[in-house]
């Protein structure tokens, strides 16, 4: 399974799109927001937590359909399904690889983009922490959505439609954590609730994703 993880990372690096695309998208969204709402720094600071979380979420969404679609097209998924590793493990590993290539860079880049939006000082730490805790849930939920739509020709759009409602709780708690951090309030409650969602999703959704893959492969 480590082999699969390393292979996915290697593929993401070699094909180029892996790390860069999501980050570039995140940057563009963040840059476009001031054009839309005006340059006034107080207003930007107020909406920065939400915009940063939303931008990270959309950037995550962008690369979801690649999780299984590429392996489905070239037949690797058939071969992995007949390999000695369980399909649940394949789903979990692929979600983990997606997180390392998407969620992790987004988490690390977010503070820099926070500067662009005048994010208040105390919020930076919580921004990184909340993204680090929350983005794994986005990857696992996304892997489930990708498993549901893997055999479909126009799966990409449908994938977004299926996955976005599932992202609601994570987005609410994540943005709330940063907002409270910005105002110097106690962040424990939303952060712990989000951590709960992440842990639950990581523990259970690979099983649902593997089931969806089996259905799609037969």
């Amino acid at each position: 399974m480590i082999r699969l993880f390393l292979r996915d990372l290697k593929l993401a690096i070699r094909s180029g799109g892996g790390f860069g695309l999501g980050l570039a998208f995140f940057l563009i969204v963040t840059v476009l927001v001031p054009f839309g709402v005006g340059p006034e720094s107080g207003r930007l600071a107020a909406i920065a937590p939400g915009i940063l979380w939303l931008g990270a979420l959309l950037a995550c969404l962008l690369s979801l359909d690649r999780i299984f679609a590429l392996d489905y097209e070239d037949g690797s998924l058939d071969l992995l399904a007949t390999a000695p590793i369980p399909l649940e493990g394949v789903a979990a590993v692929k979600a983990a690889a997606h997180w390392v290539t998407t969620g992790l860079p987004l988490t690390l880049a977010a503070p820099a983009l926070g500067v662009l939006l005048n994010l208040p000082g105390p919020a930076y730490g919580w921004l990184v922490v909340s993204l680090a805790v929350g983005t794994p849930a986005l990857s696992v939920i996304g892997a489930f959505g990708a498993a549901l739509t893997v055999g479909l020709k126009r799966g990409g759009l449908l994938l977004s439609l299926l996955v976005l409602p599932l992202y609601v709780p994570t987005l609410i708690f994540g943005a709330e954590t940063v907002r409270r951090g910005a105002e110097g309030l106690d962040v424990t409650t939303p952060l712990l609730l989000m951590a709960g969602i992440t842990l639950g999703a990581v523990a259970l959704l690979p099983f649902a994703a593997a089931q969806a893959l089996r259905i799609n492969l037969r």
């Binding site: 709780p169 609410i172 709330e176 609730l193 969602i197």
Partner: peptide, 12 residues
Amino acid sequence: FAILSRYAVLFW
């Protein structure tokens, strides 16, 4: 997730 969202929204 619908139930989770319901409570998340209440919290929000």
